[in-house]
């Protein structure tokens, strides 16, 4: 009788370990889907460098043309 009981407990423990393991594995998958914020920031910076031409240190922003700023001469 006692032997049968202990066998049942072992089975239950094994099942517990399985469920725990499955939950742990699911947690690992969740880690993989987390948004990689640091990598996204790096990617954003690389694209901003290109679009705004900031790579060579001083930004190459054209100065607004000073048209129509001459006083009327008449």
């Amino acid at each position: 009788m006692n032997e049968l009981k202990s066998c049942r407990y072992t089975k239950r423990m094994a099942l517990g370990a399985w469920v725990g393991g499955a939950l742990f594995a699911a947690g690992c998958v969740t880690i993989n889907i987390y948004f990689p914020a640091a990598a996204a920031e790096k990617a954003a910076d690389r694209i901003i460098d290109e679009v705004w031409q900031l790579k060579g240190g001083a930004p190459a922003i054209p100065v607004a043309p000073a048209t129509n700023s001459k006083p009327a001469t008449q």
Binding site: F24, A25, V29, I31, N32, P36, A39, A43, I47
Partner: peptide, 18 residues
């Protein structure tokens, strides 16, 4: 599982494809 989890975390640190 621990080894697999470690690999997963390392993959998440990689750069984004642009």
């Amino acid at each position: 599982m621990a080894v697999l989890a470690g690999g997963g975390q390392a993959a998440a640190q990689a750069n984004l494809e642009i």
